[in-house]
Nucleic acid binder design. Structure first.
Lengths: 135, 135
DNA sequence: TGCAGTCTTTAGAATTGTTCTAAAATTCTT
DNA sequence: AAGAATTTTAGAACAATTCTAAAGACTGCA
């Protein structure tokens, strides 16, 4: 991704987070390659495999902090499990039903027309489109 | 709702479910009035209040069976909690963010254009649109 | 109607995903 | 390097849901 800052300590600091060893390691795994989807559990396995043990609680803390800081977006598609998406831009998701795989698709080409106005007293926050598919 | 069958034992039987006392009681609460959204917990409170005690496990069983039988639709909008919707027709949802309230809106007027084709090897199952709003 | 056979309910235990706690370790400022 | 503030951690706690196995209810058939 051109223009992406690979200096993770700096990026974390810019987001108001101390660049601890653990957070830098997780940020590297999350943001070094292309966009990805992880769960706390999957990221925990990954970071352990990468010889960089980080406790599960820290993985949860970091994911929540990264999300709050706008570095990640939380995607709710399946009951009882939260996915986090490194793509924070406008886009939507395919969700492959039995296996739980998630794929992004850009929202450029997608147009949604005829949405009703938000209930009064509320303002629009986000529109999520989840295209559920089966094998 | 005109045309709706209020003979719950018959409806359950038609869905391949034995019309037990508990299932009939739950079906009555769910389908007697207009469309509704419930969680297992909320329905459990309701059925207890209605002097018709049904164990929480049975509420979970019934909701899952009703969903599998096509009488209910499961809606995933918030992490760690499943909503069930008595409206099984084509429609989408408003989700009011801090309080967790859900509102249906019909999909008649809504058009979604430009969706990409499903990943190969998969076929479309459903498109969910969740309009998240905040107070 | 009575009875066997099958399915359902139930309370409580178990499981799963996530958050909390309080002590130890790390990071930041000086 | 010292002190203050934040973070990490293991394990406990928690919340939502599912499982277990014993007791109860529904069904079909005599």
């Amino acid at each position: 991704m051109p223009g992406t800052n690979l200096d993770f300590p700096a990026r974390l600091r810019a987001a108001g987070l101390r660049p601890t060893r653990q957070r830098v390691a997780l940020a590297r795994l999350l943001f070094e390659g292309g966009h990805r989807h992880v769960t706390a559990e999957s990221l925990h396995v990954e970071v352990k495999t990468a010889q960089m043990p980080v406790s599960l609680a820290t993985v949860y803390n970091a994911l929540n902090q990264f999300r709050d800081a706008g570095l990640l977006r939380e995607v709710v598609v399946a009951p009882g499990r939260s996915y986090f998406d490194t793509n924070t831009g406008h886009h939507h998701h395919f969700f492959v039903e039995p296996d739980g795989a998630l794929h992004d698709f850009p929202s450029d080409k997608v147009t949604i027309a005829g949405l009703p106005a938000p209930p009064k007293g509320t303002r629009l926050s986000r529109v999520d489109v989840i295209v559920r598919v089966r094998r």
